Computed example of a mutant assay.
Amino acid sequence: MKIRFKYRPVLLLAMVACFTAIAIGNFQRSRAEQKQNAFDRIEGARYDAPIQVGAALVDAAILDKHPANARGHWLADRTVLIDNKVHNGVAGYHVITPLRIEGTSLCILVNRGWIAAPRLRSELPTLPAVRESRVDVIGIAHSPSGKVFELAPDHSKGRVWQHLALDRFREWSGLTLQPIILLQTDEVHDGLVRDWRPSESGALKHWGFAIVWYLAAAAAAAGGLVASMERRKPDE
Rank of each mutant, 00 (worst) to 15 (best):
I3S: 08
R4D: 13
R8E: 07
F19M: 02
A21R: 01
I24R: 05
N26A: 10
F27T: 02
R29L: 04
S30N: 03
K35G: 04
Q36H: 03
D40V: 09
G44V: 09
D48E: 13
D48T: 05
A49M: 08
Q52A: 15
V53G: 02
D59K: 04
H66A: 11
G72A: 07
A76V: 13
R78E: 13
V80S: 04
L81Y: 09
N84K: 08
V86N: 11
H87E: 14
N88P: 00
A91G: 05
A91I: 02
R100L: 14
S105Y: 04
L109M: 15
N111T: 11
N111H: 10
W114Y: 12
A116M: 14
L120S: 14
L127Y: 05
V130Q: 12
V130W: 04
E132L: 05
E132I: 03
S133Y: 06
R134M: 13
S145T: 15
L151P: 07
P153I: 08
R159S: 10
L164W: 00
R168A: 14
S173M: 01
G174F: 07
L175A: 06
I180M: 01
Q184G: 02
T185W: 04
V188N: 09
H189P: 01
L192W: 01
D195N: 14
W196S: 01
S199T: 12
S199N: 11
E200Q: 12
A203D: 04
L204N: 14
I211Y: 05
W213Q: 00
L215M: 05
A216G: 14
A216R: 04
A216P: 07
A219R: 04
G223D: 06
G223M: 08
A227M: 13
A227D: 09
S228E: 02
D235L: 09
